[in-house]
Every structure is written in structure tokens, then in C-alpha cells.
Amino acid sequence: MKILFFGRGVISTQYAWAFEQAGHTVEFYVRKGRKETFGSRIELEMWDARKGKKLIKESWNVKLHEEILPNYDLIIMSVNTEQLPEAAQFLSTAAGNTPVLIFNNIWQDLKSSIAPLSLNNVVFGFPGAGGGIADNTLRGGFLKMIFLEKPRAGTEPMNNKVKELFESAHFKISWVKDMQNWLWNHFAMNAAMEAEVIKRGSFPALLNHRASFANVGLHMREMIPVLKARGAKHDAISLLLTKIPPGLLGILFNKVIFAKGSLARLFVEYNNSKAGFAVLEVVREAKKAGIPLPRLTTAFENTEYAKEI
């Protein structure tokens, strides 16, 4: 299969490498000027957890394009949430009839989030990977599991294509019946986490404060009325963060989920992305609905986002 990844970010690069290892052709679309900036190689220091836990260290040749040609079997897009509308607008004309996998976190309803792309040409999924890129070196890793929405009416051929691609590279698919609800809950969890990242200064710094994980649960509890206003139902993520006592949740995150040496911890340690947009989106939504979010709003004090609320 010939696959085009939209952007050469940390998620795109890791899955592209895995697909190339499985015999597929992978290429990247990058904005004008980025091809020269990025160069034709990227250094990889990432953990592959599809079969055990294996450290991949290599200098990998990548093929970058500054335009999209109509000869791909699939386009995979995984971008920062705030970049999604612009990227969808671009692909609506540049992608033609090529099916698109949106491998992304999304807060808006799915149809409007990708407009003017057609839902009939899109499959939604979510990666099981993390990390960051600095000085042209990718540090992070990926798990065996990825999340993929169950086929909607008319999307069966696209879903099957995506399913076969990931399974050919030895990934396991967790099928999501209601992708909209799943993403709403997951986005809220990200907002709860980012509120603490803003306070601590970075994602790695978060790991040094057990109290921050207890606060993540309290932030999530505060957001439940916003989720309900959207028509969202509790899923496993929400139940974990809102039903477990905050003190116990802090221990669970610190000692189990983000235990030293775990891949989940490594994903956060190497995450050098800017936090705050997820919090901003949720706070904006709450303000429209007249729902107070004092904990999340306080997180924005003395930040550049304060003026946007």
C-alpha cells in the first residue's frame, strides 16, 4: 500500500516507520520550506512494544513532499488539535478521492471538525503512541493497540483498508462503537492533564508531583457537567478519573500507570509539546453553556490564554 502522512510529527513518523518495515511505501507531506528544514533523515530512539519491548535506534531516510499527488491508497493525518480545521480545509481539495484516516484528538462534533471534508471519505481513529521530536531526534514509542471507529454506513471498504494496513504491521485494533463519545471523554482527560502541565511548566515536570495526578481527577469531576451538556456518556476514562478518590488516584498514576520505566511515563517525559489548547476549548464550551469551571479557569491565570476566555 502507498501511504501519505500529513506532516512529519511524532505520531506520523513512528507509524510510518512501522508500515515501511511491513513492506508498505510511506511518504510525508510537509508545508513549503519544511522539506529543506527537516532534511531527508530523522534520528529514531523509540520503543516498539508490538512484540515485547524493543528499543529502535537508527537514522531513518524519509521522503518528503511539499505537494500532494493523486496516487496514494490512504492519507493519514495526525496533527495538533488546533491545526485540524486548516488541515481538513486543505485536504478537501488536495486529497481528491483518496480516503483519509483522521488519527487525532477532537473536541468538536466529528462532522464539523473536518468540514469541508466529507464524512463518507473519512475514518476516525486514535494512536497508542507518544513522545516528542527535538533536534531532529524522535524519542518516544508506540504500543501494540490502536483505536479505530467501527464502520459507519458506507465506510466499510475504507475501514477494511485501514484495518488491513495496521494488522499487516502487527498492530491490534480496539474497535470503538461510538467514536464521538470516546473522543469527547478522551479530550476532557487531556484538558484535565494539561491544566496541571500549565501549573508545573512542562509534561515531564508533571511526573514529579503526585498531587498533580490527584488534581487531574478533580479537574475531570469539574468537567462532567460540560460533557453531559454535550450528550456524552461516561466511559472507562471518566469513571477512572472521577470515581477513584483523588489521593488514591495520585498513587495509582504515580506508581502504576506512570511507573518508572513504563512506556506511558516515557511518552510523557519526551513530550515537549505546548499545553493549554485542550483546556481552552473546554473552558470556551463551558462558558457558552453557562457552566462554571473555576479549577480549569484558574489554570490560565498569568498565561497567554487568559485573554482568549
Rank of each mutant, 00 (worst) to 15 (best):
P70Q: 08
G131A: 12
A87S: 07
P151N: 08
I56P: 02
N120Y: 13
N97D: 09
M145Q: 13
V123L: 14
N120V: 14
V79C: 08
L148H: 05
A95L: 09
M145L: 15
E58I: 15
Q89K: 15
D109N: 14
N97Y: 04
A87R: 04
K57Q: 09
P116A: 11
K144F: 04
F90W: 01
M145I: 15
P99E: 00
S112G: 03
S118Y: 07
E149S: 12
G52Q: 01
P70V: 01
V79Q: 01
F126Q: 01
Q89R: 14
G141W: 04
P70H: 07
N80K: 15
T137R: 10
L110P: 05
I75S: 00
K57S: 08
L55M: 13
K144I: 08
I56F: 01
F90G: 00
L143T: 13
V122G: 07
F147I: 09
L64V: 11
E82R: 15
A49T: 03
P151W: 08
K111V: 10
D73H: 15
L101E: 00
Q83W: 12
L138D: 03
V62Q: 02
I68G: 05
P70T: 08
D73Y: 10
R152L: 12
I133T: 07
E86L: 13
M145T: 14
W60H: 13
V123F: 04
L101V: 12
I114C: 07
L117K: 02
G96R: 14
A88T: 09
A94N: 04
I102W: 04
V79D: 00
I102G: 06
G141Q: 09
P99W: 05
A87H: 02
L148W: 13
L84A: 12
T98S: 00
I76Y: 02
A129F: 00
A115Q: 10
N80Y: 15
K57M: 12
S78F: 06
I68R: 11
F103M: 09
L117C: 06
L148G: 03
G132M: 09
P70D: 06
I76T: 08
R139V: 14
T93M: 13
K63C: 04
I106F: 02
M145H: 13
D73I: 08
K63G: 02
E67C: 05
I68A: 06
V100Y: 03
L91E: 03
F142M: 13
R50G: 05
G141L: 08
I76D: 02
K150Q: 10
A95D: 09
K51V: 12
G96N: 09
L101T: 12
K53W: 12
K150H: 08
K111A: 10
L74I: 12
L143E: 11
G140F: 07
N121Q: 14
P127S: 08
I75C: 04
A95M: 06
A49M: 05
S78D: 03
K53G: 00
G52P: 00
Q83A: 14
I56W: 05
L143I: 07
N97P: 01
E58N: 05
P116I: 10
A129H: 02
V100A: 03
T93G: 10
H65E: 02
F147K: 11
E82H: 15
I106E: 00
G130N: 01
Q83D: 07
P99S: 01
G52M: 05
G130V: 07
V100H: 00
T81M: 06
S113P: 03
L84E: 02
K111T: 15
L55R: 13
E58P: 01
I76P: 06
E66M: 11
Q83C: 06
G132F: 08
L110K: 07
V123G: 01
G52A: 01
